[in-house]
Write a protein that binds this DNA or RNA. Structure first.
Lengths: 323, 323
DNA sequence: AAAATAGTGTCTGTCAGACAGTATATC
DNA sequence: GATATACTGTCTGACAGACACTATTTT
């Protein structure tokens, strides 16, 4: 290896180099933490013993974690957990640190899924946000509101799309979609507030427009917030994009979905996780065939439900390599 | 739409908020610009009239654009083109601006492919680099060495992998690879130097180790430079990762490869572009079947080669939508 | 037995891999 | 005709989509 050695001239240059002369942004990491939970935070293994409907499996929902900001700007608004990158810290470490502070989860799936640096996105000044997608087993997680938050809560995610333009020409095309994102708080939360409000249902809804332009044979995509009710900064856009990122990941490389599962799970739970993310029904035999290599029988079974008991599976680690 | 309105207290807070109290990094964009060209910068349509080998198609190679740094640090070393993000500029705009300055190309494929913010990666201080992958038709491009560079050149890319560890256990695995990257300058370049050297062949070679760890059912990947001869900063790592990113893109979504092609091309040229990137031979009938929808006949043909003439195709824009 | 979910078998069409074969330009 | 590349047809096996079917628990 040829080492790079500094000349005296270079050392002098560096000594007089003043990085603070230049405009610099603040750099932050925001995290879209998703999990799948049944009402009440159950993952679905424990059946809800509802007399009226003892046979029905509990409904499992996709959740995203939001905190209620205790400081300006957007004090009192809901936002993604996140924080500033510290010196000598990699931006991924920032994300991992913030994730731990908020959830006490150490080894979750965590992946960069976007960068937002538009001028004016934060009233405090020039702040570039690196957005991470985190996936975790909701059961493993103990929520904690950070020092800059009043509370932290899981929100049920409803997500839908509406095509509003499809203009195809000889040499290009323009596609426009509207994404409707509705977040509704459940009763699971951690709070720093002593004066808990009576009404504990929070409902946030946003509309984000996607403009895909095909020109010169590659696409450019832009997102713009059309409506936003209660979400801080440009987080409506960030959550929408994270949701699209998650969906694309689940379509192409189903492996990520396992990060939302508990260590042991049934086929039905795994399939429902896919169905929730992709927002469509899958055919059971085909789904099991496709995923067969990724799971391994544990020998254990579920019991207590009003029907044939299901086998419990775990991940087959060996199948997760090779890509 | 519920607009967010600022209270007086919030306005006061923002007035007294001093962003400069906090540690902030400089933010830069570096661009790995790839193209495919035949020796001498031909794209392959014009046949090299070599008497000895008049029938042979000219060899087409994958190239990456490097500049020779005219300023410290790493003065005289080769580096990716790039520059600092300016205030009120999105990081993507930075990349596009730098790409234009260096190549005069305006509408190229440009996509974020990595972030490097490790402490100590730049002797000037805390500098976070956002790396972009750019793909362009080498013919369209007029190289220009920027103000901070002595020259800009295309380098032939040789890239190979060696597996050095594969340790698979019940609950996880550790995979290690070595990537050998060799860059060799061709004679195409733009220079700001008056004293051109006699010897104009430059050869840079680097070795980067990849450590993939599978634990808790998701992978973490780390890259480390083992050997580096002549490349500035951590650009050996960045180019290696960009190369892997390009390869993965070409495997999954072959569309990106079209960005390396001229407006009109033959099947053979398109196939060779894939083969160069993936570093493996493809079977012609299968390849054409898979790509059939993406191309459209122009009615024109190549002539002058010592064999049956090939049809010229262009992109079928309509096939590039829907994903 | 009824309800509800668990789990399996199989037909079909599509598509990728492999290979054999035909076509047409220049020298 | 030799050479080199262009282009096409078809067999095969893998696999995804669709659907019909059997199995087993609790009340």
């Amino acid at each position: 290896m040829q080492l790079y050695t500094m000349s005296e001239a270079e050392k002098d240059f560096l000594k007089s180099y003043d990085i603070t002369r230049y405009d610099r942004p603040s750099v932050a990491a925001d995290i879209a933490v998703f999990s799948i939970m049944a009402r009440g935070g159950l993952t679905g293994i424990e059946q809800v013993q509802d007399k009226e409907n003892y046979r029905k499996a509990p409904e499992r929902k996709l959740k995203v974690l939001l905190i209620r900001r205790a400081t300006w700007p957007y004090k009192g608004c809901w936002a993604l957990p996140g924080g500033f990158c510290r010196k000598n810290e990699d931006i991924c470490e920032t994300a991992r640190r913030e994730l731990y502070e908020e959830t006490h989860v150490e080894n979750a799936y965590l992946n960069l899924c976007g960068i937002y640096g538009e001028a004016g996105r934060d009233p405090r000044g020039w702040i570039i946000s690196h957005t991470f997608l985190a996936l975790l087993d909701g059961e493993k997680c103990r929520l904690r509101a950070g020092s800059d938050a009043w509370e932290a809560r899981w929100f049920d995610v409803s997500f839908s799309r509406e095509e509003i333009k499809k203009q195809v020409e000889e040499d290009g095309a323009l596609l426009e979609n509207k994404y409707f994102l509705t977040l509704e708080s459940s009763d699971i939360f951690a709070t720093n507030l002593s004066d808990r409000r009576e009404e504990d249902t929070v409902r946030l809804s946003t509309v984000v427009r996607e403009q895909k332009e095909f020109k010169g044979y590659h696409e450019t995509v832009q997102y713009e917030i059309l409506e936003n009710d209660g979400l801080a900064f440009d987080h409506a856009k960030i959550i929408t994009c994270a949701m699209l990122f998650l969906r694309r990941q689940a379509e192409t490389d189903g492996k990520v979905v396992f990060d939302l599962m508990p260590p042991e799970f049934t086929w039905a739970q795994l399939q429902s996780a896919f169905e929730i993310i992709l927002d469509k029904k899958l055919l059971t035999p085909n789904f099991r065939r496709r995923m067969a290599d990724y799971v391994r029988e544990t020998g254990q079974m579920i019991s207590g439900a009003g029907h044939r008991p299901a086998k419990l599976f775990q991940r087959n680690v060996n199948a997760f390599y090779g890509a």
